[in-house]
Write a protein that binds this DNA or RNA. Structure first.
Length: 127
RNA sequence: GAAAUAAGUCGUCUUAUCGCUUCGUUCCGGCGAAGAGGAAAGUCCGAACAGCACAGAGCAUCAUGCUACCUAACGGGUAGGGGGAAAGGUUAAAAAACCUUUUUCACAGAAAGUGCCGCAGAAAAUUAUACCGCCAUUAUAUGAUGGUAAGGGUGAAAAGGCGGGGUAAGAGCCCACCGGGUUAAUAGUGAUAUUAAUGAUUGGUAAACCUCAUGAGCUGAAAAACCAAAUAUACCUGCUAUUAAGAAUUGCUCGUUCAAUGCAGGAGGGUAGGUUGCUCAAAAUAUCGGGUAACCGAUAUUGUAGAUAAAUGAUAAGAAUUUCGUUUAACGGAAUACAGAAUUCGGCUUACAGACUUAUUUCUUCU
RNA sequence: GCCUUCGUAGCUCAGUGGUAGAGCACUUCCUUGGUAAGGAAGAGGUCGGCAGUCCGAUUCUGCUCGAAGGCU
């Protein structure tokens, strides 16, 4: 329960890293789709930082209204904040979370998807 | 009491747990305070503010367009004038006229000039070129020549309308009334209205070009300033100390300025973080006063988001409103609109579940 | 945040005030033993939507919906 914070240090803000993360030719980028979310991440060793940096994106193409986009971004962030404390995320350095669905979805669905992904990552790390 | 229309106001609330942003405080563990809208939207107008330019002048371009007022300003608003439409009333045989109410109008100029007006029609615009018709003459029984725009027909629109005189038949050819034009007087700040005189009286279109009047320098906070880091007045090519050519002068021209630490191009390198701008402002609320109103003035109180890939959220419980079912006052289910600040204001436009207030009209019930 | 352009037949596009067109595709017929090509005929449009100007709007004006692109 100590790790339920989400401050500025955990947000991905560097343009260079973002460009690197969305480069399709880069072999270090791994991608997993768990509806309604898609995760793009890197497993590099990180030095000095305690937690991974995360980026959340909701496309304007799929969801026209700003109110709904904001709501979904907040729900994704909330689901990450509540679930990250359960698992060991030492291997994860950068993570981009994309919203794929074309309609508004409830918090429950997003949370399930996030939980599944984090579970898989932490297991991969232990093996 | 219900419905419709118009105008205006509001537009879910409370508690708990875990979080986010800013500010304050701190014994650095924390603690406290504040935290989306009426449209924050569209980006359609107008400003503030900032940078660049600025001796100045002209042209072009764009916008606005009845009058007065409000306003920092406006293409916004208020009031008035005029035109159109609808309803009712009065006069009247009818056409129509007048009055009242409601509603609506991007409402300067077509007598400065140019263009356009398909099809139909004789003719679509410098006193018109005659299809049918009417009249005259002539030959003859239907043609020819001439006159005629009153009637028919065509069309969205036919050279003011209507009645009388007049005439071979007709025509503002002449006259009365009406409409419109011009001039004058009176009323009004003005748009305009009323009255009088005057002359036969020139289709529509300017959301076609255009004319007139008024206004606008250009670019927008990703503007701009400072700090840190990095550094380059590196290098190459061209242009020039005189004329020419060139460059700048932010649409063009004149004019003005420029001589190397300059201008233009090439190739290449670095940074891409922070602070200010940034939220106290043409501020909001209340009361009183002025004004038909938009709005203005005085007094008091309040101190009201400031993020930067971008905070204002998630979960649980309860309440409120609407609706559906069971069934008659409780239970259960569902729903609670439009929509998210990005420098800040004033408007306009568009979206909006539901609730409330006021006014008008209609219907019903009671007195 | 700011700016620009485009919505016309199933698809790609013309048309810029006066009866909405072309190519490909589609349907029917001819041709062939059969198919393709070729020939003949035909169907298919609220000109994105709502208002206004005009006698008349795809065209002009305003609002609105959607799509694409640019500035950085």
């Amino acid at each position: 329960m100590k790790q339920q914070t989400f401050k500025k240090e955990e947000r991905l803000r560097s343009l260079k890293v973002i460009e690197q993360l969305f480069d399709r030719n880069n072999a270090a980028n791994l991608s997993v789709g768990v509806y309604p979310l898609r995760f793009i991440y890197q497993k590099n060793e990180r030095s000095g930082k305690k937690m991974p940096e995360i980026l959340i994106s909701v496309s304007k193409r799929n969801l026209k209204k700003a109110v709904i986009r904001n709501l979904i971004k907040r729900r994704i962030r909330e689901s990450y904040r509540l679930n990250k404390g359960k698992y060991d995320l030492k291997s994860l350095s950068y993570l981009a979370v994309l919203f794929i669905a074309k309609e508004n979805l409830s918090f429950e669905l997003i949370q399930k998807s996030m939980d599944k992904f984090l579970n898989r990552i932490s297991k991969g790390n232990s093996v």
